[in-house]
Design a protein around this nucleic acid. Structure first.
Lengths: 253, 253
DNA sequence: GCAGCACATTGATCCGGATCAATCACGGCC
DNA sequence: GGCCGTGATTGATCCGGATCAATGTGCTGC
């Protein structure tokens, strides 16, 4: 570890902010980049994609990108920062549905009900690309690659919903959660072994259907077992293989 | 209750088998019926939908419609009978992902991975409409109603995945499960208060992340409380409002 | 600097549901 | 018919994680 950091501290990881893109190209980590590449950057349809996208933000930690019941008009790709989606039942209890990193898309579950079924809340300073959904659908009809990409994104999210399914131990859940995050950061080109947890222990616990105290205890145990190094919300995975083994029942492959 | 049934026995409910449709019309309960109606039965594109659909079955209880790892080529609409989808981890433990009734569609979660990520197993004698997905996508490009219908089906399934989320008591889960089934039967025109549970207690328990014994106990308690009448797998809801109240935290509205 | 507050950690106790176990009911099959 | 396997029910015990509680730690604002 570099000596420019105080002893006992983890260095700040590189900030997970996606490239902004420029006037003719889209963000490298953008959820639609593969669709764009497949269609070819020079196709005239891409000019339309330029038209229907709008950069929004910044949102500060705690601010809502959308709220339950808002009419559905657009989906949002995270350009930078982190978001949680959550439902709040009528007794006021919160239920975290997921965390979204740069390059990932929120709002897909609002297509059917035509209203957002959940809140989206920024966990830190966050930026988005806003895609008008009617315009996106129209484009999808003309550009097969865009249609296919939408189908794939929807289908992919169906798969991830089952991460927290099953009756698994607290250790399994936490290990799988950390490895899932690591894989998603890696997929977007960020470090897979050292990153910042944008969400509180309470949010992690809520998402994993555990108590915050349990998450805290498991993380402490993992640290004692030299599986991770953790200091507040700065995390380093010391033994990814060991973590994968613990969480294997919940992880793909 | 009709006297033609022995005392203490529930009568057989009407069999939930969807209309087969005929050569020019589709099944009334079909997952695509609304798309067809929106597009108009007389449109030439509908002739294409006729071409890409294929009636398959019957499958007997326990037979697989598809298996984990099978290449994804088609989605299946349940025409009659009931199906469970499940994942089996490498230790051999089963994880039930969902139950599908006539009019519902399985296989959507295979679009992204391009291979089925789970098994689909018939719970009783079951029939399907098989829709070639490449053909379906091509049609969706030309018929906006079909594209929109696919988006809506995918989005809808995203919403239902969160039914079993949250840490809820066994009573809440079972009550919500029964009311969910009732609503889905009602949506397809079957009785919402009297139906057959095609799945074993073990399957229900697995789906709800409970032990089979717990499901059995909860059902017995509900019977003692006059909320339901249950005899083996024949179920009658005596107090749907009471059940809705118990399961409200997991149910929409 | 310090007060105030939200979040995190660690310990002690409790409880809902899992697990183990026994019995029972029901078909299927020879 | 009788046998056997599967599934359902009910009871007894146990345990993982929730809950309650106390303390620690790091921001933010004054």
């Amino acid at each position: 570890m570099s000596s420019k950091y105080p002893a006992g501290r983890l260095p700040e990881p590189p900030s997970p902010i996606a490239d902004d893109g420029d006037e003719t190209h889209f963000c490298g980590t953008c959820a639609f980049s593969s669709a764009c590449i497949a269609a070819g950057y020079d196709k005239p349809e891409l000019a339309e994609l330029q038209c229907l996208v709008e950069h929004v933000g910044p949102f500060r930690a705690g601010e809502h990108i959308f709220r339950t019941g808002d009419p559905f008009r657009a989906i949002f790709a995270v350009r930078g920062g982190t978001v949680k989606t959550r439902m709040v039942d009528k007794e006021g209890r919160e239920q975290v549905l997921g965390f979204y990193l740069p390059g990932e898309v929120i709002g897909l579950n609002a297509i059917y009900p035509e209203h957002f079924p959940c809140d989206a809340v920024a966990l830190d300073t966050a930026f988005f690309c806003r895609f008008s959904f009617p315009a996106m659908s129209a484009l999808a009809s003309r550009v097969p690659a865009v249609q296919q990409h939408l189908f794939r994104m929807l289908s992919k999210e169906l798969g991830t919903a089952s991460l927290l399914a099953g009756d698994h131990s607290a250790d399994e859940r936490v290990a799988a959660f950390l490895m899932d995050l690591a894989g998603r950061y890696a997929a977007r080109g960020f470090s897979a072994t050292r990153f910042h947890l944008s969400m509180s222990r309470g949010d992690i616990a809520n998402y994993l259907r555990l108590a915050a105290e349990t998450v805290s205890r498991v993380l402490s145990r993992f640290r004692n077992q030299k599986l991770i190094q953790i200091e507040g919300r700065e995390l380093q995975l010391l033994d990814p293989a060991g973590l994968r083994k613990i969480g294997q029942a919940l992880l793909p492959d």
